[in-house]
Simulated assay, not measured.
Amino acid sequence: MTHNEEIRSQVLELAETLTDEQLNQKVRDDQWSIMQVMDHLYLMEKNLTNTMKKVLEDGEEKSVDDKPIHLTVDRSRKVDAPSYVVPSDEFITLDEMKDKLYKSRQALQQFESETNEEKRQKKAFPHPVFGLMTVNQWIPFIGYHEERHLDQMKEIKQQIL
């Protein structure tokens, strides 16, 4: 979780340098605003935590090799977000978003601390690019996913300033 925490801090630090208006500003109609990227991160973490809980409770045991999830930060390959983690177009304040991100991170931390690592290693569910991943691997994946989008946020920030 250390990597996840470091990246989350960087995401929030970047956001805190901008106004709510700048955070919600879109450079192009076909591109997300920084706030939409943050909303996507919230939706992703919330949904993955819920899925991990369900898989840990109800999923079948599977033997799965670790995947190269560190490659998630490589943005040369575009991956479309599933519909359930696509952010809305509504205006969101940074305070509102920080609250949402805090709650989703709390839920992830609680899940990790209250579940057995060995059991998490025996349960898995598919990633659209990497295929079947253990519940254990999904936890650090969240940090790599946020790191990928942190780079996107930096690019958007350069374009709006």
Score class of each variant (00 low, 15 high):
residue 23 L to H: 00
residue 11 V to Y: 08
residue 14 L to G: 11
residue 158 Q to C: 03
residue 137 Q to M: 04
residue 5 E to C: 03
residue 148 R to P: 14
residue 38 M to F: 12
residue 3 H to L: 07
residue 12 L to N: 05
residue 48 L to T: 13
residue 83 S to G: 14
residue 15 A to N: 02
residue 134 T to D: 01
residue 41 L to N: 03
residue 52 M to I: 02
residue 53 K to G: 10
residue 44 M to F: 10
residue 118 E to T: 11
residue 62 K to F: 13
residue 152 Q to G: 12
residue 145 H to R: 06
residue 6 E to H: 14
residue 35 M to F: 06
residue 36 Q to L: 07
residue 14 L to T: 12
residue 110 Q to Y: 10
residue 28 R to H: 12
residue 72 T to R: 07
residue 147 E to R: 08
residue 19 T to G: 00
residue 96 E to H: 00
residue 139 I to Y: 02
residue 151 D to T: 14
residue 89 D to R: 03
residue 21 E to C: 06
residue 66 D to T: 03
residue 68 P to H: 04
residue 148 R to E: 11
residue 121 Q to A: 15
residue 36 Q to G: 09
residue 13 E to T: 10
residue 73 V to Y: 01
residue 63 S to K: 13
residue 63 S to Q: 13
residue 41 L to D: 00
residue 151 D to E: 15
residue 66 D to A: 03
residue 36 Q to H: 02
residue 142 I to Y: 09
residue 33 S to E: 04
residue 103 K to S: 14
residue 108 L to A: 05
residue 44 M to R: 10
residue 32 W to M: 06
residue 136 N to T: 13
residue 124 A to G: 01
residue 110 Q to A: 11
residue 98 K to E: 15
residue 94 L to C: 00
residue 76 S to N: 14
residue 66 D to W: 00
residue 63 S to M: 06
residue 103 K to D: 14
residue 156 I to T: 12
residue 33 S to T: 04
residue 65 D to Y: 00
residue 148 R to F: 06
residue 32 W to R: 05
residue 42 Y to I: 13
residue 88 S to W: 12
residue 107 A to R: 09
residue 28 R to P: 04
residue 61 E to N: 13
residue 92 I to Q: 11
residue 119 K to D: 15
residue 91 F to V: 08
residue 66 D to M: 01
residue 155 E to T: 13
residue 42 Y to N: 14
residue 132 L to F: 02
residue 133 M to H: 03
residue 143 G to N: 00
residue 159 Q to Y: 00
residue 47 N to R: 13
residue 83 S to D: 15
residue 11 V to I: 11
residue 32 W to P: 07
residue 148 R to W: 07
residue 40 H to E: 13
residue 106 Q to L: 11
residue 31 Q to D: 10
residue 128 P to N: 09
residue 120 R to F: 05
residue 143 G to F: 01
residue 49 T to E: 00
residue 161 L to P: 08
residue 86 V to G: 05
residue 123 K to C: 07
residue 115 T to L: 01
residue 126 P to S: 13
residue 47 N to S: 15
residue 112 E to G: 01
residue 92 I to H: 09
residue 34 I to A: 05
residue 88 S to Y: 04
residue 71 L to Y: 10
residue 20 D to Q: 00
residue 145 H to P: 04
residue 155 E to P: 04
residue 104 S to W: 01
residue 4 N to M: 02
residue 154 K to T: 11
residue 62 K to G: 08
residue 6 E to W: 13
residue 95 D to E: 15
residue 145 H to F: 06
residue 84 Y to I: 08
residue 83 S to N: 15
residue 131 G to A: 01
residue 61 E to R: 09
residue 38 M to C: 15
residue 111 F to W: 03
residue 26 K to Q: 10
residue 14 L to A: 10
residue 87 P to D: 06
residue 106 Q to C: 02
residue 161 L to V: 14
residue 98 K to Y: 05
residue 143 G to C: 06
residue 78 K to G: 07
residue 70 H to M: 09
residue 15 A to C: 10
residue 56 L to K: 11
residue 100 K to I: 00
residue 119 K to T: 15
residue 122 K to D: 00
residue 104 S to K: 03
residue 125 F to V: 12
